Simulated assay, not measured.
Amino acid sequence: MGKRASLSAHEGGGAEPDLAGLLLRVATGDEAAFAEVYDLMAGAVLGLAVRMMRDRAQAEEVAQEALVDVWRRAAHYSPERGSARAWVLTIAHRRAVDRIRSEYAAEHREDRAGRLEERRPFDAVSESALANLEHERVRGCLSALTELQRESIVLAYYNGYTYVEAARVLRTPAGTVKTRIRDGLIRLRDCLGVA
């Protein structure tokens, strides 16, 4: 069944396209299946993003990012865990929440920076020097960790991996990675003298 036939069956109230089957095909890199998923879900994803963001331009960006995530993460979809539609909309919801949090944090950072700016003049050279010193301290403390601790922390905190994703990359059980991260963070805290 072609893309247009699939859409007309869906729009006309006929048999709903097998979104779960399409996602399983997307997981294998099937671009035609992704085009069908995109056509079927883009409106719902955008609608959800618009309701959450209340800014059409940002909602369109979030929707686009969410659908790209669907392409990238299709292999993570499991029909046993829920409907394909719910899975796609959950990805869109998470993307929108992330964007809202990011915007909120950016606004507060700007407010804090503005208040701080009012209290003291900005010295770009000393700020840069302090940042470089701090980076060197962190780099030195990281080098004191075991290799597995360091790799786990870098994957989790610098690359944004979850424990499970880091465990896959390191070919190590997730529980071990979680423990190494915890132990490594304690050692980093002690090395940096953070209370």
Rank of each mutant, 00 (worst) to 15 (best):
S126T: 15
V68C: 10
S102R: 09
L142G: 01
L130K: 13
G14H: 05
E107Q: 08
G13N: 12
D111F: 10
A49M: 04
L24Q: 14
G13V: 03
A96C: 06
L40P: 03
S6I: 12
R137D: 01
D190S: 11
Y158D: 11
A57E: 15
L67E: 03
A27F: 09
R115D: 09
R101N: 07
V50F: 05
Y163F: 15
R171C: 05
E61Y: 06
Y157E: 02
S83N: 01
V68S: 05
R25K: 06
F34S: 01
A156N: 08
L89R: 00
E65P: 13
V37L: 09
Y38W: 10
V70Q: 05
R150I: 03
L40C: 02
I186T: 14
V68K: 11
R25D: 06
A74W: 00
V194W: 15
V70S: 08
T162D: 13
I91N: 04
H135M: 10
T179N: 15
T146F: 03
G114L: 13
I91A: 10
A174V: 07
A174P: 12
S128Y: 07
D39R: 11
W71P: 09
M1H: 07
F34Y: 14
R171I: 06
H135A: 12
V169G: 06
S126Y: 13
A174E: 15
L7M: 15
E134W: 11
G14R: 00
R119G: 11
R85S: 02
R54K: 15
R73K: 15
A15K: 10
Q58C: 13
V194D: 07
E134V: 05
R112I: 09
A96H: 06
I91C: 03
L130W: 11
A5T: 14
E80R: 13
L40H: 01
R73G: 12
L22H: 02
